[in-house]
Design a binder for these strands. Structure first.
Length: 493
RNA sequence: GUCCCCAUCGUCUAGCCAGGUCCAGGACACCGGCCUUUCACGCCGGCGACACGGGUUCGAAUCCCGUUGGGGACGCCA
């Protein structure tokens, strides 16, 4: 069993001081994130979680985490674990929960009894086949596939295979002022009597969310706009339960590059996959926040800035397409902002992918500042770090064929002598020496630097050559120079 | 099909609510240049959009209507 107790991951600092001002008139802000554990946390869900979390943190309120697992067939523990892992990674900590709907069935049953007693719900004996027919008939005659209310006034009781339906109003309109979309209204005639209690004894989503949001005193429901059509039905349920409705904010969906609902066809959609690909959580948070929300022309936001600046008014109304390139760019930025220590701590898994199971930490730390401007992901960072961490460098065949040739033997020989004399600590002296040598040999600086670069790193691209030598140290520099010198005369091996 | 939502560069967006300062600004990507010992970083420049049609107005990206387009919902899934 996972430990899913009260979580306190990162304490959002109050730098920039968001405004946790709470007077006694306005109730404390409480938001929630209620995924159903039927799959991994995907980008859309993560953004919804982020917006709810930011809204709560901005207002100094509470963020509740709840698992909507009323569908026992599809809900799985492994998905709960992966969602929790993703939330942890992103640093979205919750104040209460996780609550499991599957453990609250008694409470839902109680609500249903109450509605039944007040004639706000009724038993329905219609078999699935009939429902299917009614839907098809409605569709055929150009209408909306809705339940026709056959059992509505029959006064039926429980029976095998029976369900309980909500007895909704047939006239009037149900609307609300949406926090992001503005006024929205539905004709109640468009709403049919939805099932709130299944024949297997479990409550349905609509009933469970409403009861939970009431019990958990949720004040703001921030969710994807694919829930807009559910909202009038839920508002009616709040009323049937004699409860006040929370405020609703429907944020636009995140689409794939072809502008359709995000799915596996669009590449990596599970947030946790980005951790494995070498992305930093701050980059993901930054990217997710900017998908739909904006603050003038600002593009870069730290977690604390997000908390200080986030508001629902600045959330756009149109759907957004997720752009992996922008995430990559943001990741490069946040890698550069990060500290060598933190990066080094996050690197082992990526190093391991390259077969490096152990390495010298001091060397890695020393190299880090020269590596970060070149890496857009931790995976790339590990790649750049490799030459500094392995005993014998792997030579890029092309680089070797081009630079470790007999004609360059003299270059390597002379540089070795130079290093023996000057050491590797004084970059300026080395540079002067390189220029001098280049002039003597009738070469440009690159003519000297490139063979040396390949000799020391095995590649044609690396940090500045004098930095490379300093990081490697005199001994290893000389050893690699020597080995490369041998290679210039034995092309095959 | 019915209902609901939406509509500024390829993408994310600012501007729209309180019409003129917008022949529309920023960012990513792309292209060119600079820097340079390589690759990056950085810097400079370029390409590139108000979906369409009416209306209101001296004036509309901004307000109104319509069209088109897109998305979502219509389950004993959430």
């Amino acid at each position: 069993m996972l430990n899913l107790g009260r979580q306190k991951l990162s304490k959002p600092s109050n730098l920039g001081s968001p405004m946790p001002q709470q007077d006694d008139q306005t109730p404390r802000v409480r938001t929630r994130f209620p995924p159903s554990p039927t799959g991994a946390l995907h980008l859309g869900g993560a953004r919804t979680a982020l917006f709810n979390w930011l809204f709560a943190r901005h207002h100094g309120g509470d963020f509740v985490f709840r698992l909507e697992d009323t569908d026992r067939q599809r809900s799985r523990d492994e998905h709960v674990e992966s969602i929790v892992r993703a939330m942890h990674w992103l640093g979205l900590d919750w104040d209460e929960g996780p609550f499991y709907q599957s453990r609250r069935f008694d409470r839902y049953r109680e609500a249903i009894e109450q509605m039944l007693a007040q004639d706000r719900a009724y038993w329905c004996h219609c078999p699935p086949e009939r429902l299917q027919q009614v839907r098809e008939a409605a569709l055929a005659s150009g209408g909306k596939p809705m339940y026709d209310g056959a059992c509505r006034e029959k006064g039926l009781g429980p029976a095998d295979g029976a369900v309980v339906r909500f007895k909704g109003p047939r006239q009037g309109h149900t609307g609300w002022r949406d926090l992001v979309k503005g006024a929205i209204s539905f004709d109640n005639a468009e709403l049919d009597d939805l099932v709130i209690f299944r024949s297997d004894g479990s409550p349905t989503y609509h009933l469970a969310v409403v009861v939970d949001d009431v019990d958990m005193k949720i004040t703001h429901v921030i969710r994807g706009d694919d829930h807009i059509s559910n909202t009038p039905r839920q508002i009616l349920l709040y009323q049937a339960l004699d409860s006040a409705t929370p405020q609703f904010g429907h944020v636009p969906m995140i689409l794939g590059h072809d502008k359709t609902k995000l799915s596996k066809r669009h590449g990596a959609t599970a947030v946790i996959a980005y951790q494995d690909m070498g992305y930093l959580p701050e980059a993901m948070l930054n990217a997710l926040a900017r998908l739909g929300w904006s603050h003038g022309d600002q593009e870069i936001f730290s977690r604390d800035e997000l908390i200080a600046l986030f508001n629902l008014e600045s959330v756009g109304k149109g759907a957004a397409v997720f752009d992996p390139d922008k995430l990559l760019h943001l990741n490069a930025h946040w890698i550069q902002q990060s500290t060598p220590e933190r990066l080094a701590a996050a690197l082992p898994p990526f190093l391991a992918q390259r077969g490096i199971m152990a390495h010298d930490q001091a060397t890695l730390l020393a190299a880090m500042p020269h590596l970060t401007p070149r890496a857009k992901t931790l995976l790339e960072l590990a790649d750049w770090a490799e030459p500094f961490l392995v005993e014998a460098v792997a030579f890029d065949p092309q680089a070797r064929a081009k630079f470790l040739v007999p004609a360059n033997a003299v270059v390597l020989q002379r540089v070795s002598e130079m290093v023996e004399g000057l050491g590797v600590a004084d970059g300026a002296a080395l540079e002067a020496g390189f220029k001098d040598l280049a002039a003597q040999l009738g070469l440009k600086l690159g003519g000297v630097a490139q063979p040396v670069r390949v000799a020391l790193t095995g590649r044609a691209a690396s940090p500045g050559i004098f930095e490379v030598m300093a990081i490697l140290g005199g001994q290893r520099t000389l050893a690699r120079l020597g080995r490369a010198l041998e290679m210039t005369t034995s092309p095959g091996a």
